[in-house]
Amino acid sequence: MATFTGQLINFLAALLLLIAFAMLSQRRILSLIHLFAWQGFILALSTTVVAYSTHQPHLYYSAFLTLVLKAFLLPWILHRLIIRLNIKWDVETMINVPTTMLVGIALVIFAFNLAAPISQLADTITRSTLGIAMASVLLSFLMMITRHKAVAQVVGFLAMENGLFFAATSATYGMPMVVELGIALDVLVGTFIFGIFFFQIRETFDSLDIKNLEKLKED
């Protein structure tokens, strides 16, 4: 039975990696937010499976927190934001999508190689998913780099936080509850602040393109 839950965790981890790639290739902002919600849902699911298979009661709480915050609340806030900002355009990427994908594959190989020695030292049931967790952190990072628009970058940032959470779960069965609550609050407050920033940026530049922030003075 333990092996079956192990396989299930691996399968969910694979789905997380797939979603990270789907986010990287996604051109529409609304689908990006939907994918982010799915990522949160699968994260909560895999945390529940880890909690069940390792009998760690505190992981149930963090799974519940993840489900409420990352699968429902944050996507809902982002959704409201893009309706209020009246964003209709598609997300523009700096490099074209197939090239980004190839870079992404290289990152995955790098992350797997990096995680391999660490996984061999660990004796947790989730040790093999550490590589995937690191890969999804790196892929979210890549997404933040390749996008022009502020909303997509914020989704990338939140996805990176998801990756870090998954890494914590797979390496040490999650962080202490206090830390997790703190991070959850940070993310929530951060999203609100980002929302305010969106409005400010757009008011100043009539666009959410981050490129505008690079100019130091008006010409």
């Binding site: 981890a13 694979a14 990696l17 290739s25 995955v108 093999s128 998913t129 590589g131």
Partner: peptide, 17 residues
């Protein structure tokens, strides 16, 4: 087809886990 290639490579990498 690039997506198909990506999925195939990911599948192959996943064997290492």
């Amino acid at each position: 087809l690039g997506t198909a290639f990506l999925l195939a490579v990911l599948g192959m990498l996943m064997l290492e886990l």
